[in-house]
């Protein structure tokens, strides 16, 4: 196991009033367990406010958890500092959603992508040489490396961001919506590239996305998040073939051009449209957090919060009614 998150949570304080006192918390992630095996592409799916990005950042300690623990390659790194933290940084990487904002606007691409090596004491000339090598692997020509980010297209910038995350050969990379800021035609290029790199470098991915089609293509495991909690998780095939949580089903039924997308014929899903909009994560509903939008809601859902139950091996769902909902 490369990564294990145990009952992890992150609360962001909301300050208000004259003295900017803490008046409440955004419970972005509120008690999540996640186990990622070496070689997985573990997708975390959810809508805005689900806490998926926060969970991604927690898993490589870009944020410190409010509670819970992080175990990376068998070592507890929840409170890692100094050399231990540096080692963790060396073995992990992240690619952000918006390639327009994740590259320093005043640095040349070559300096941006070789910085991880330089931080680790590599001599700049050597680092640049390695950068050029890696860049050609992701399809960035040498001349592009000597330009500034604003002179590159979105796809090219995202390739540069990938080089930066990859260059010291980490074990685990968090991909935070890696293609959602890109055009469709570029999106496919980047997804294919990520797939190739995974094989080449024996990587493990945590893929954060709202796009279930991408999940199906890239991931082998998926966790569906809603308002800071995982509501369903398991192998991708299982979740797509027999989703149990009403929220998972409604995510699947919300895919545009659904008939075309599912025209492979293997999968048939029932259609559920959730009503209304996700509530704010500052005040999640009592009981099951999805009950305000769930078409199957019964009394117990409003009172008691369901816990993750095994449906079968590796497939878990948090719903009072999962035995009745059978896709």
């Amino acid at each position: 196991m490369i990564l294990r998150l145990k009952n992890i949570g992150k609360y962001f304080p909301i300050r208000g009033g004259l003295l900017s006192r803490v008046v409440g918390y955004v419970k972005a992630v509120d008690g999540v367990d996640l186990e990622v095996e070496e070689g997985d592409t573990y997708a975390i799916v959810g809508e805005s406010g689900s806490g998926k990005t926060t969970l991604g950042k927690l898993s490589i300690k870009l944020l410190d958890p409010t509670f819970g623990s992080i175990e990376f390659m068998g070592r507890d790194v929840t409170f890692a500092k100094g050399k231990e933290l540096k080692d963790l940084r060396r073995s992990t990487g992240i690619v952000f959603q918006d390639p327009y904002r994740s590259l320093h606007p005043r640095k040349k691409i070559i300096d941006i992508v070789s910085e991880p090596l330089i931080i680790n004491g590599q001599d700049p000339e050597e680092a640049h040489k390695i950068a050029i090598e890696f860049a050609s692997m992701v399809g960035l020509t040498k001349d592009l490396l000597y330009k500034y980010p604003h002179q590159l297209s979105g796809g090219q910038r995202q390739r540069a961001a990938i080089v930066r995350a990859l260059i010291y050969r980490p074990r685990l990379i968090v991909l935070d919506e890696p293609t959602s800021a890109l055009d469709v035609s570029t999106q496919a290029q980047i997804l294919n590239l990520l797939e190739d790199l995974k094989k080449e470098f024996k990587l493990t991915y945590i893929l954060i996305t709202h796009n279930l089609q991408i999940v199906y293509h890239l991931a082998n495991k998926v966790a569906v998040m809603y308002l800071g909690k995982i509501v369903e998780k398991g192998p991708v095939e299982k979740i797509f073939e027999s989703p149990r949580h009403p929220y998972t089903i409604s995510l699947l039924s919300s895919i545009p051009a659904i008939d075309y997308v599912f025209s492979g014929g293997k999968i048939n899903i029932p259609r559920i449209t959730p009503t209304g909009e996700p509530p704010s994560p500052t005040k999640p509903p009592k009981g099951c957090r999805f009950h305000t939008r769930c078409p199957f809601v019964i009394d117990i859902c409003r009172r008691e919060e369901p816990t993750l139950q095994p449906v079968e091996k590796d497939h878990y769902v948090a719903c009072h009614l999962w035995q009745k909902i059978n896709a």
């Binding site: 933290l85 992240i94 590259l103 320093h104 640095k107 995350a165």
Partner: peptide, 23 residues
Amino acid sequence: PYIEAAVSIGASNTRILIGHIIP
């Protein structure tokens, strides 16, 4: 995000301040 990216690759506070913010 580019500062967060710098943190993710292990840049120290001094490095972030001098190399990323001051420019």
